[in-house]
Design a protein around this nucleic acid. Structure first.
Length: 768
DNA sequence: CAGTGAGCGAGCTTCCGCTTGACTT
């Protein structure tokens, strides 16, 4: 029997702590929350002051019974869940479920996993803070009420299986509103004039000054007029300013900033970052990865300092403690940092190595000296125009933290080039070299969100927590509200005027505009649900809703507000709105009439139908039968035009007969396809146009597909086949797939062995 | 994995925030 049982939330943490505490302590994990509101009847008795009905979910039964046993055998139970609202609630649920005495159960907390912090925690136990627990209960119940009362309204008024919630609905709103800004954005162009100057005419040996004119010109004629002036002017150096400046390192990683940087620097999705970080955490290589704190432990500060001095020297070291600025941060953990800062690299797979290195660099850089820079700005005057050229250059005098790490930005063009500028003096003559160019530039719409920039925005609004950013992003995609996509962009011509040796020549260049990679695009159903929520539940999807209820949760935590009172204030008007909406509002289809059919005069409209967005010609009145066609990918109800809608009815179309079978082109769930002999063949994205593709090209696609199909088959035993799949070889029989046992030599497989594997797999399936 | 759009109705869907595996066609 062990005297002391310590319960923490994470098994990896349990392992580490047990090492610090010694033999008298047994440390176990609760694996997060152990109880939750019951699923049925919302788990809340609204009539009885919102009394919650808690139950242990099935997946947690085993953990709970093990915890019960361990607790009954220990003399003292210490609950060491995180020091925040959720952690306090976990402690309370544990106490109740394990039959512990609330008055005597020892509640301990630490914000960093170091021997010192843990020993100190053990010396200063407290009891469970019921005010904090109550603020969590209020939070939990409010979220349940919002989610489980609004979602069924959506099922009735929009579509089944949809969902709404305090966090996800705001996330969708952000994306929808950004898309509408982009839709209504009107791109304008102007001419930007740039030139390269030297101190001696025709000689670039003493350096080049790249400068831009202070004025942009609205059209080609104005730009040409200006270039004429440029041709006949004398250039002299105007003002020269040299300013010293410093740059400081970014704070250590939180969950949100790690997700952003891993996306920008490594191209990881939000969930991928979390999965890789989880691996590093479990291997003891980094601290906990779900945190909103930028705090580093004393130990980490000291270790980082040692590493920096050893590696770069004393003058590169500057110990800093960063204040967490994020709204609603609860700071139960440290920042995400290397467990051992002396390891600049670790083993593991490639992604683990890369993410670790990023974390190491960010942490180390945060403890390094500022970089010292010198910024030079010069202006270049013309003697026949008030327009000036200007150039800025930056010289790094001392690199400081830049030696290790530089944070990236979301701008795709990256930072403007910052060259060094040759030494010049006021009044000195300058000459343009090569050419002066007026280049047409288009204004660009606001950028679409990436997963990571959406997380950043949510964090700024104080919505969601480190543990929910990744799941929230998955949810809004799983519901079909938004979709992460690439777009090829559109080519456009830009005009360039070149002044070269006194002559102006005009050329055009092609550029691609609006190219997108891994961006979040709203889908029709997301836009419809968003509009429905804004029409009917504007309070809930307000960007400030979370911040406002958080203030009240804080009051509850301070003991200044009773939680049933808070919920009553909220629920009264909220529930009335629910009933009102159910009773009075029609089903939302978002129908748009686009115009009339050019030949028949029938009305053409689009709307959300039973199977998704649909275009319709004619109405079903007077016994007429309307015609229908589904919208295709990348078309929105909000922006589709009459012509585009009419085009949809040109498919499916027949290409004619080949070898006695009809070949048909259509568009399905997965894009344009060829149907031939009962099989489907996808048209090539970006290459084939379903409206114009011909029989010859179709046959090409079909034979290509058949060829690659052949490579997919490793062995063919008739009814059983061994195929090459995404996860390696597998078996297939009667449209059922089966995994192969590890270490199977695929080439030597016989039909009998395959049958055995299938039989075995069927058996285990039945028993489970 | 891909043609759907008539209507009815039973039974289902759903939240946020703490945690990991199990499993993948």
């Amino acid at each position: 029997m062990i005297d002391n049982l310590v319960i923490v939330e994470s098994p990896a943490k349990a392992k580490t702590i047990e090492k610090f505490l010694g033999k008298d302590f047994h440390v176990v994990s609760s694996y997060g929350h152990i109880r939750d509101l019951a699923k049925k009847n919302s788990g809340i008795d609204v009539e009885k002051d919102f009394a919650p009905v808690y139950e242990v979910p099935k997946e947690k039964a085993k953990v709970v019974s093990e915890l019960r046993k361990a607790a009954s055998e220990a003399k003292t139970v210490w609950i060491a869940s995180d020091e925040d609202r959720e952690g306090e609630a976990i402690a309370w649920h544990l106490a109740i479920v394990l039959n512990l005495d609330l008055a005597t159960t020892k509640r301990i907390v630490f914000h960093e996993i170091t021997k010192e912090a843990i020993s100190k925690a053990i010396e200063t136990p407290r009891t469970i803070d019921m005010n904090l627990v109550n603020s969590q209960q209020a939070r939990r119940i409010l979220d349940r009420l919002v989610g489980f009362e609004i979602s069924p309204v959506l099922w009735k008024k929009v579509q089944p299986s949809l969902s709404a919630g305090r966090v996800q609905s705001v996330a969708v709103r952000l994306i929808v509103e950004r898309e509408r800004e982009i839709i209504s954005f009107k791109s304008e162009s102007s001419f930007r004039v740039t030139g390269e100057f030297t101190k001696e005419t025709g000689n670039a040996d003493n350096g080049i000054i790249k400068a831009e004119a202070s004025k942009r010109f609205p059209n080609e004629d104005d730009a040409r007029e200006f270039l004429k002036l440029c041709c006949n002017t004398a250039y002299t150096v105007g003002d020269v300013t040299v300013k010293p400046g410093t740059r400081s390192p970014a704070p250590p990683f939180t969950t949100s900033t790690l997700q952003q940087e891993a996306y920008r620097k490594l191209g990881f999705s939000v969930s991928q970052t979390m999965a890789v970080a989880q691996k590093l955490y479990e291997a003891g290589k980094i601290t906990y990865m779900r945190t909103d704190s930028t705090n580093l432990s004393k130990l980490a500060l000291a270790k980082s300092r040692e590493v920096i001095i050893a590696e770069f020297g004393e003058k590169y070291s500057k110990t800093r403690q960063f204040k967490t600025k994020t709204k609603g941060a609860q700071e139960a953990h440290e920042a995400i940092r290397p467990a051992y800062p002396d390891n600049a690299t670790v083993g593991g797979n490639n992604n683990e190595k890369r993410l670790y290195e990023l974390i190491w660099k960010r942490t180390i850089a945060s403890q390094m000296a500022d970089a010292e820079v010198e910024k030079t700005t010069i202006t270049i005057d013309m003697n026949n125009s008030p327009v000036k050229f200007s150039a800025t250059g930056e010289v790094i005098k001392f690199d400081g933290f830049l030696k290790v790490y530089m944070e990236s930005t979301d701008q795709e063009n990256g930072d403007e080039e910052r060259d060094t500028i040759p030494v010049v003096k006021k009044g000195m003559p300058l000459y343009y070299i090569y050419s002066i160019a007026a280049t047409q530039r288009f204004t660009i719409p606001p950028p679409r969100y990436t997963e990571a920039s959406l997380v950043k925005k949510l964090e700024e609004l104080g919505i969601g927590r480190p543990s929910t950013y990744a799941p929230t992003i998955s949810t809004i995609q799983n519901r079909g509200y938004v979709s992460r996509e690439d777009r090829p962009g559109e080519k456009r011509q830009i005009k360039i005027l070149n002044l070269d040796n006194g002559k102006i020549t005009a050329t055009t260049k092609q550029e691609v505009a609006g190219k997108e990679k891994s961006k979040l695009f709203p889908q029709d159903i997301g836009m419809i649900v968003n509009d429905f929520l804004i029409e009917n539940f504007s309070d809930i999807v307000d960007y400030n809703f979370t911040a406002e209820v958080e203030e009240q949760f804080d009051e509850i935590a301070m003991g200044d507000l009773k939680w049933p009172q808070m919920l009553r204030n909220f629920y009264g008007p909220f529930h009335k709105t629910i009933e009102n909406t159910l009773e009075k509002k029609d089903r939302k289809t978002s129908t748009r009439v686009l115009g009339n059919h050019p030949e028949t005069g029938e009305p053409v409209s689009v709307r959300m139908g039973r199977f998704g967005p649909v275009a319709q010609i004619g109405n079903s009145d007077n016994g007429n039968k309307p015609r229908f066609a589904s919208l295709i990918k990348n078309q929105l109800l909000e922006t589709i035009t009459l012509d585009e809608a009419l085009n949809l009815f040109r498919l499916p179309r027949s290409l004619g007969m080949h070898e006695g079978e009809e070949m048909v082109i259509g568009v399905g769930k997965f894009g344009p396809y060829i149907r031939y002999k009962g099989k489907f063949f996808s048209l090539k994205k970006g290459i084939d146009d379903p409206y114009s593709v011909n029989m010859e090209r179709a046959l090409e696609i079909i034979s290509e597909k058949n060829e690659s199909e052949k490579n997919k088959i490793i062995k063919d035993f008739g009814e059983i086949m061994v195929l090459n799949g995404r996860y390696g070889p597998y078996l297939t029989k009667d449209k059922q797939n089966y995994r192969l046992p590890k270490g199977t030599d695929v080439q030597k497989l016989t039909k009998e062995e395959c049958l055995k594997i299938i039989e075995k797999s069927d058996k285990t399936k039945k028993t489970s």
